[in-house]
């Protein structure tokens, strides 16, 4: 509904992503735990963009949404990076391609109510996460 777009191109943008997610979560009436999980997941995903996307660039679009099921927040992370060849592999705990702890994607998935990832080698990656007020 209310869309906020944050461009990610440097480490300081992580603060903007977290702050925009927190604002949206509070507006949508999410509980503190759900909010903290959402903000943390967003921080992980934005950091992934910084680390792996071409030029470390991408965007996050944050929307409040209301459905019959309740209110919530949806965030779409898009980058034009190298993409991911084996999604199953990166979604497994412990996998890491960049020397990190390798908990970014599977960890983020556990933190939110809905998580979808779409990627093709050479065509970038799109991750959509949603958190609901229940």
């Amino acid at each position: 509904m209310v869309a906020t777009v944050v461009v990610i191109s440097g480490e300081s943008d992580l603060l903007d992503v977290r702050s925009a997610l927190r604002t949206a979560a509070e507006r949508a009436g999410l509980r503190l735990t759900a909010t903290t999980k959402l903000v943390t997941a967003g921080s992980e995903l934005a950091r992934n963009i910084l680390r792996y996307a071409t030029g470390g660039q991408g965007t996050v679009t944050i929307e409040e949404c209301t459905t019959r099921a309740g209110r919530g927040v949806r965030a779409v992370f898009v980058d034009q990076g190298p993409g991911i060849a084996d999604l199953d592999e990166v979604m497994r705990d412990g996998f890491s391609s960049g020397g990190s702890l390798g908990i970014g994607l599977p960890g983020s998935r556990r933190l939110v109510d809905e998580f979808t990832i779409d990627s093709m080698p050479g065509r970038g990656t799109t991750v959509v996460i949603s958190q609901w007020d229940r």
Binding site: L32, T33, T35, T36, K37, T40, E44, D93, L101, I103, P106, G107, S108, R110, L111
Partner: peptide, 14 residues
């Protein structure tokens, strides 16, 4: 570490 942060860390796998 607050309850919300504790749950978040555990779910995250940290």
């Amino acid at each position: 570490i607050s309850p919300a942060v504790a749950i978040t860390l555990v779910e995250l796998g940290v």
